[in-house]
Design a protein around this nucleic acid. Sequence first.
DNA 1: CAAAAACGTTGATGTATAACAATGTTCTAT
DNA 2: ATAGAACATTGTTATACATCAACGTTTTTG
Lengths: 189, 189
Amino acid sequence: MYEQLQKYITDRIKTDEETLNLIFSKFKPLNVKRNTFLLKEGDVCKHYYFVNKGCIRLFNINKEGQEGTRYFAFEGSFGTALPSLIDQKPAFEYLQAVENSELLAINRADFYELVDNTREFSFLYRQILEFAFITAQKRIYGFQGLEALEKVQWLLTYQPFILSRISNKLVASYLGLTPATLSRLKAQL
Amino acid sequence: MYEQLQKYITDRIKTDEETLNLIFSKFKPLNVKRNTFLLKEGDVCKHYYFVNKGCIRLFNINKEGQEGTRYFAFEGSFGTALPSLIDQKPAFEYLQAVENSELLAINRADFYELVDNTREFSFLYRQILEFAFITAQKRIYGFQGLEALEKVQWLLTYQPFILSRISNKLVASYLGLTPATLSRLKAQL
DNA sequence: CAAAAACGTTGATGTATAACAATGTTCTAT
DNA sequence: ATAGAACATTGTTATACATCAACGTTTTTG
């Protein structure tokens, strides 16, 4: 159950069994079917999720009804609607299982308790935030002013598994293109 | 010299004079003229900067030679090229003073020493990262699929001081528009 | 397993914004 | 103060991608 999470932790920081068990005790298993929503716009986000198996995505819907996907979390990654989780305000975004998925969920109180009281977890959270920030930054600066074809090539370089595992429709929403345009571009590669 | 930084800290966390002085002792004053580069692409970023007065910006130049501004740090804000600072790898970006500015610079070793050994600073850094991440996220999802005019309106709503304080050229590079387009849009508002 | 729905692909057309360009204006530096 | 450079504005033209649409294919579901 916790092998994946254990690997995540021990790959990043030296720790002991007691601490690991303390951490594990706060993460509750949660199995969800494809397309299940973990969070909808307007909800207040209560959990951080660790993906054991499957994939979840974070997206928003603009006023024309178009989806924009911000982030895919695959196995071995954390995902949540961070702004809402941090401030406990209604989310602007949706969190949804892309595939049938096995998750581990930790609630906000337990999460911050671990952050505040467990040296190892504090370090891990700092790493998560740093990584999340860098990833977000790369996506902004990496895409700004890029042509559509270059966006696809960027994805091919930095996150090729997304192209093979995720439907065209969702990839298009991740790149900010229409499915029709993405389909044409893929034919050119 | 350290009033602004003191305010930043005490606004966010309760602390004592000794800790404040320890923190201040690591931040060295640095005055820079308008347009001075603090970091260029390919450099390894060595410092975190706190802006006492003035403004610095983080931007990159794409292969067509166009600038894309990612972030403006005004007085009372922190700014650096975080990916490079964290990993100590060559930066993809430039860091430049937009106006004559008074900065406080802390080097990487001192910064992480404070993070690791000072409870208050650890908390502050966590807040900085959370805030930076949320800001970056809002800019991605907020802009994805937006029309140019809506981007300007977004800026007017969330960061109006940028429009009044920063040149059209730089605002345009922040919004991913040409100066000509921005000029036309502003006439429509 | 059959029917329906969702998705992917390809074509024709429209449009928002870039690119180019010319002129006027505001900074900057000596 | 004045010359030069950078910047802002406005007009014209070009183009990348969206939109709309049709059709074939795959996936879902009862």
